[in-house]
């Protein structure tokens, strides 16, 4: 039961992007198409999962005073591996995400989960935590990129959805559109929270 809880908390209640407002840089930069959003989410989840497993397995071995540098090295190693794997097997996505793949290293969510969860909990719970946070972040990216792609390009997953007569609001896939979409979503989250409390 508690494992299920570790999984579900990341999806809505502690959604890393919409509730904790972490990992904003890639969320604004690459959410111009759903494809990119999904790809970024998958890469991010893979890194988080791998780093959570290793850090929770080594939590009794890593000396406390140098835990942060150790985490950074571990996370950077996994990011580089994902970077190489994506370059080899998904070249189009690799090109679209560009510099934001190596920048997963400095995504505060990953170091945050290592510090707040993986170094205090077992491997099993850490896996569930990573999956929950990863899925939550991916969902958030897909929502963002869905809104921006439909409004800004008139397509969803590259398939036209608005009909030929509608002309898309170009601004939504330009940089300002990222800020607008994210601002609207956060305002909506605030509204929902105020209603709940």
């Amino acid at each position: 039961m508690s494992l299920v809880n570790e999984f579900t908390k990341g999806i809505i209640r502690e959604n890393p992007l919409f509730v904790l407002v972490l990992g904003t840089c890639p969320a604004l930069a690459i959410t111009t198409s759903v494809n990119n959003g999904l790809g970024m989410g998958a890469a991010f989840t893979a890194v988080l999962l791998a780093s959570n497993i290793v850090i929770s397995a080594l939590r009794k071995v890593i000396p406390d005073s140098i835990r942060i540098p150790s985490y950074i090295v571990i996370v950077a190693a996994f990011v580089t591996m994902i970077d190489l794997i994506m370059h080899a097997y998904t070249p189009a996505l690799y090109k679209a995400l560009g510099i934001y793949i190596p920048l997963i290293v400095v995504n505060c969510i990953i170091l945050g989960r290592a510090e707040a969860f993986a170094n205090k909990n077992g491997v099993g719970a850490s896996i569930m935590d990573a999956l929950g946070m990863g899925v939550g972040y991916t969902l958030a990216l897909v929502v963002m990129s869905g809104i921006r792609e439909i409004l800004g390009a008139g397509t969803f997953f590259g398939i036209p959805v608005l009909g030929a007569s509608a002309s898309p609001a170009l601004i939504m896939i330009l940089p300002p559109g990222g800020f607008i979409a994210f601002g609207c979503i956060l305002a909506l989250m605030n509204k929902l929270q105020q209603k709940a409390s």
Binding site: I62, P63, I66, P69, S70, V73, I74, A76, A77
Partner: peptide
């Protein structure tokens, strides 16, 4: 210790 971690990562 850090050296070993970095070495393994490398």
């Amino acid at each position: 210790f850090l050296l070993v971690v970095a070495g393994l990562a490398g």
